[in-house]
Design a protein around this nucleic acid. Structure first.
Lengths: 160, 160
DNA sequence: GTAAAACCTCAACCAAAGTTGAGATCAAGC
DNA sequence: GCTTGATCTCAACTTTGGTTGAGGTTTTAC
């Protein structure tokens, strides 16, 4: 083996390359999770002669972004798709990231809106106990998803 | 077998008892899901002599409530716990349901609040592209979860 | 030059919330 | 009385987002 004394993050690779353990420590995600992300195409790595992963430091950004997106409720598969649209050769710019943020903000908005609608209706129902009555709008998901004023279409006639 | 001519929903049981297929049709959930809910203790059934399930009609309410709770993002296990606190002998009153709604509304509020905080921070970040910079508050989940003004504690020093 | 720490792959397992299918029984209509 | 539809149980499979462990290699450190 011709590679003798080398630092863990820099054994023959461009300066600033990180081992999986270092990425784990600095990003706060487990090594196993990084492996997992790699199998899902969310991150990529180079390999040393000894087959160990070496990450460009940009991976820290990527992982941070993945975590943010996850917290907004976006599934990994969608995150992967979004990340795949980032420029391939160069490192992403602030604008590239901002573009992603914008898209995800929209999705987040959507989710918040839906939950707020649900809350308002739950609100209406608390006072009257109508959750147990047949006209309760909460009984019909369709109403919640597509406009609040729509005529109630019941899922269950209940008591004929 | 001594049970000769009987209607599907009423073969020897109190009037208004429902078969699993009827509950499925009227509640909009699959038969398999009802079975599943039963194994999880979310609903209960009586059995005919032939071992088929018969539900009291109150089950429709219960299923409707389960679905509402699910839409607010509450896991089935928690729903089960909540439902288990309903009165055992008598059918739940409007007040009983309202009590549940109140609790779930609080949880829903909490979730909305968290998402809104996340959105606001994402908002701040879109303009400046700071998602890629080391001071971005989004990098640190703790900040988001426990107060917005807290000093940013970084997950990753990034670039030493 | 050797021991320990870090790393590798691959497979199995976990939880949640169900769905699907096999093989058997029940119930109802003609 | 027989066929058809509904139901039964039980096990296996699905997806998402990972974790855990076995068995083996690499790298680092003394």
């Amino acid at each position: 083996m011709p590679n003798s004394k080398r630092s863990p993050s820099d054994c023959g690779f461009p300066a600033g390359t990180l081992s999986v353990g270092e990425v784990a420590k600095r990003s706060g995600v487990a090594v196993s999770t990084l492996h997992f992300y790699e199998t899902k195409g969310l991150i990529r790595s180079l390999r040393t002669e000894g087959n160990q992963r070496r990450y460009p430091r940009g991976v820290l950004r990527r992982v941070a972004v993945i975590k943010v997106a996850q917290r907004t409720g976006i599934p990994l598969a969608s995150i992967q798709t979004a990340l795949a649209r980032l420029p391939d050769g160069r490192a992403p710019t602030a604008d590239d990231w901002a573009e992603l943020s914008r898209a995800w903000r929209a999705e987040l908005d959507e989710r918040i809106l839906r939950l707020a609608q649900l809350r308002d209706q739950l609100d209406d129902c608390i006072g009257c106990g109508c959750l147990s009555l047949k006209t309760c709008p909460l009984r019909n998901p369709q109403d919640v998803l597509s406009g609040q004023g729509a005529g109630p279409r019941l899922l269950e006639p209940e008591a004929g």
